[in-house]
Amino acid sequence: MPPGAPAVFPSILSSMVVIRGDSVTAPQRLLWLLKPTLFLACLAPLALLAWDAWSANLGANPITAIIARNGRWALRFLLITLAITPARRLSGWTWLIRYRRMLGLFAFTYACLHAASYLVLDQFFAWRMILEDVTKRPYITIGATAFTLLVPLAVTSTKKMIRRLGKRWLQLHRLIYVIGFLGVLHFLLLVKSDISSPAKYGAILLLLLGIRAWTWWGRAMMEWATGALAAARRGLLLRRRAGVAK
C-alpha cells in the first residue's frame, strides 16, 4: 500500500470495510483482490471473442471481425493505460498506479493478438503480400510502426528494468503518446468514409493528453508563481534588512 492511500480511499469501498468490521487491514485486502479481478476483467474481451468464434457468432466474415475486435481492444487498453495518470491526479487515488503496468501489458497483448490474426488468419503467412501491405499501404505501415514501438515498452516493463534504466525509463515510456497517436491514425486511415469511430478514439486521446498538458502547464505556472512569490519575499526581506521597508 503506497503511503497516503487509506486517506483518499474511495468512500464506497471504505464503507464496505466498516460493514465487515475489519477497519485496519481490509482496504489492503480489497486492493489485493482488485488486481486478480481486474486481470480477469481484462481477459474478458478475449474470452468473449473465443466464445463468439466457437459458437459461430462472428458474422459472415469472422476473420475480419477477429482482427477488428482485437485492434479495438488494443487501442482501448492503450487509452485506459493513458487514463491512469490523469485519473489518479483528478481523484487523488494514488493506488491506481499499481494497475498501470498490467493495463499497458494488456494493450500489448491485444496488439499481439491483432497482429497475429492479421498474419495467420488474414494472410496465412503470405509474406510477399504482407511485405507489400507494410510498404505500400500507409495504414498498415503505421499499424506496424505502432506495434514495433510497443515491443520495447513491454520488454522494459519489469521492476528490474525500471530500476536499471532509471530516468531513461521514463523517457522511453513517453513513446506511449506516439503509439496512441499512431494507433488512432492507423484506424482513421483504414475507414472508408465514416470517420466517427476513429474520431471518438482520437477525441479521448486528445482529452487525455490535454489533461496532461493542462497539469504540466498548471504545475509550471505554480512553480513560476511560487518562485516569483519567493523571489518577491526575498526581495522584501533584503529591502527590510537594508532598512528600505518597514
Binding site: 466474415n61 476473420i63 496465412f124 503480400m129 501491405d133 505500400k136 499501404r137 495504414y139
Partner: peptide, 19 residues
C-alpha cells in the same frame, strides 16, 4: 489495379479460409 488500401490481387470468399 490495387486500391490504395487493399490489394485487389486476392479476395476472401466468405466461408473460406485461404484467399
Amino acid at each position: 489495379v490495387d486500391h490504395p488500401r487493399w490489394s485487389q490481387k486476392r479476395e476472401r470468399r466468405l466461408g473460406e479460409f485461404l484467399k
